[in-house]
Design a protein around this nucleic acid. Structure first.
Length: 214
DNA sequence: GCGACAG
DNA sequence: ATCTTGTCGC
């Protein structure tokens, strides 16, 4: 049994970790690889899928999976308690870190500036960008193009248009600037509803879950 | 107290 | 996220 975590302690951990987030320019090699992770669930069992694509390509380069049992329930603002364990497990299996990692969820667009994307970035010291399908926290200024997400008077994210689902909400995770986040996501969106690595991770997670557990 | 609330 | 029929549109 996983020990029960008190809400207050989980929040305190976020406040402490949020001070470790770095917002700095991202430097990518000419040939760089982007990682994407997503988790599909069946009750409290989560299957995390990690995929790699080459920057600017929607070709699938590599895939790996990890399953974690006894996950705690989803609580808005504390998504990391449920989703980080399977993500950290599948990433721990990788020999090489990606140059940039896309995470399903928010980064700094969070009540404590510590969404799942920032959490994973800080814990693994890897550049991350949060990509979500809806807004959790922050104010959107739609008089700008693209619309920007503000938290505490600071622009931490943006709203990007996609083909399928309409809009996605991206935000700084760790070790990237907002301009980096907008550019890297845009360069890997193609005609998909999510940037390529996350589009694959989302699809493959559900397939893996369906074939493993039924 | 009331409403909002990533996946 | 997941559950889950019929229905609207290209």
């Amino acid at each position: 049994m996983r020990p029960k975590i008190k809400y207050e302690n989980a929040v305190r951990a976020q406040v402490l970790l949020s001070k470790k987030v770095k917002v700095e320019p991202l430097s990518l090699p000419k040939e760089s690889f982007i990682g994407g992770v997503d988790v599909a669930y069946k009750k409290n069992v989560g299957v995390a899928t990690y995929v790699l694509t080459k920057y600017g390509s929607k070709k699938l380069e590599n895939v790996d999976y990890a399953t974690v049992d006894n996950l705690p329930p989803y609580i808005p603002g504390l998504f990391y308690l449920r989703e980080a364990p399977p993500i950290l497990k599948v990433l721990s299996r990788q020999v090489e870190k990606p140059h940039i990692l896309f995470i399903n969820g928010h980064g700094l667009a969070h009540p404590r500036k510590m969404g799942l994307a920032s959490y994973i970035g800080v814990v693994l010291n890897v550049p991350t960008i949060g990509v979500a399908k809806s807004l959790l926290y922050g104010k959107v200024d739609r008089s700008i193009q693209p619309p920007l997400i503000f938290v505490d008077e600071l622009a931490v994210g943006a709203v990007l248009r996609t083909k399928g689902r309409g809009e996605i909400y991206i935000s700084i995770g760790h070790r990237v600037t907002l301009d980096d986040a907008i550019r890297v996501v845009s360069d890997n969106l193609f005609d998909l509803a999510l940037p390529a690595p996350l589009w694959y991770a989302d699809k493959l997670s559900k397939e893996a879950l369906a074939s493993k557990i039924s």
